[in-house]
Design a protein around this nucleic acid. Structure first.
Lengths: 195, 195
DNA sequence: ACAGTATATGAACAGATGTTCATATAGAAC
DNA sequence: GTTCTATATGAACATCTGTTCATATACTGT
């Protein structure tokens, strides 16, 4: 056999990335073979190389696109003049965006060490950009006298780490609604950064 | 050749676990081969099987021993009557214990999905025990009227997630001393859980 | 209908994988 | 010194690894 009926790069390409995303998130990049990805797509392993130069690039692309989507979505929010409003908005955005993309989040977090040095540097830069947005919010509130934070750099990392914790336990249809989760975290974070 | 000079299970055993710990933390369980571990120890791959029935058991043992050490160390602390004292003590303990064992912590966190179902259940149980200690502290303080927490279960996970964030950025000899880090996190957590 | 291009197959590559085992030597006990 | 056991070797097993490539078929434009 050779080219199959209905085959199209517009279809196969996304399907490959979706399968890779799913498998990488579930078993880890190193534990997943190109043949497993191909099998999930319903294709032979060789066909994958029409869509990625190698396995590493497949991982890198998934992570890069995720981080770019994250930054674009954050950028699309209405801007808030008040730091407290901005912080609340950030918390809600972070929780909702990440809960909608559990696989991407998991990979972006767990597979950093499987990136080549150049690819790693690029992803780290995107991550830093995201953190900087929160840090600016905390800085602004601090200078306006609304917040009382010992160290805004650390507070930034602490808040993000805390919010990321949600991904490990939240299940939709569970005890708490998304609104409730958002409210609980907002209360905790707000108290933590306020005088 | 066969048995080598100076060979002893009391020496080789720990060296194998140390090498596995180091390599698993650095490259991930799936990405590390038995031959790599053997090479780091200075031995042939076959010799590893005098010390572990298989690769999976090697990972499991490392994780189990780490969690048991953690629980034992926590248990050895002086007990505090006051919930605020207990919380502060817990925060300091968590940060210091985990920073002393970065490889173990990393593995216990990242390699859960590479455990067999039975092994996973065992490690999860130990983790739960640890979380329960913090949850009791929060419950006690809540009932005594010192804390104002919407949901102690979530607050427990939030605090631990926040503290775990320290492992990703703290470097000894860096900008902040351990005492300073502890103080900053204590302030944030204390404010977050207080009225 | 035909030519050109896009997209797949499937075999092949060299090497790595976890694990087993017959065998050999080192150390311990008497 | 002899016997027994603990501890290693190194070859072998079948299978899997990422990647390449000649080839064949499906689609696209004329």
């Amino acid at each position: 056999m050779a080219r199959t009926q209905g085959s199209h790069s517009d279809i196969t390409g996304p399907r490959i990335r979706k399968a890779a995303l799913h498998l990488f998130a579930r078993y880890g990049y190193a534990a997943v073979s190109m043949r497993q990805i191909a099998k999930e797509v319903g294709v032979q392993a060789g066909a994958l190389y029409n869509y990625t130069p190698d396995k590493q690039s497949l991982l890198h692309r998934l992570m890069r696109e995720h981080m770019q989507d994250l930054l674009a979505a954050l950028d699309a929010l209405d801007s808030c003049d008040d730091a407290e409003d901005a912080l609340r908005q950030f918390i809600g955005f972070h929780i909702r965006f990440h809960l909608q993309r559990p696989d991407e989040v998991f990979i972006a977090y767990m597979e950093l060490r499987n990136l080549s040095p150049e690819n790693f540097a690029e992803i780290e830069d995107l991550r830093r950009q995201y953190e900087n947005v929160l840090e600016s919010i905390l800085d602004t509130g601090q200078q306006a006298g609304h917040f009382a934070i010992s160290d805004t750099k650390i507070a930034t990392l602490a808040v993000i780490a805390m919010l990321n914790g949600v991904m490990t336990w939240y299940r939709s249809g569970g005890r708490l609604s998304l609104d409730e989760v958002e409210e609980i975290y907002w209360k905790m974070v707000h108290k933590a950064v306020t005088v």
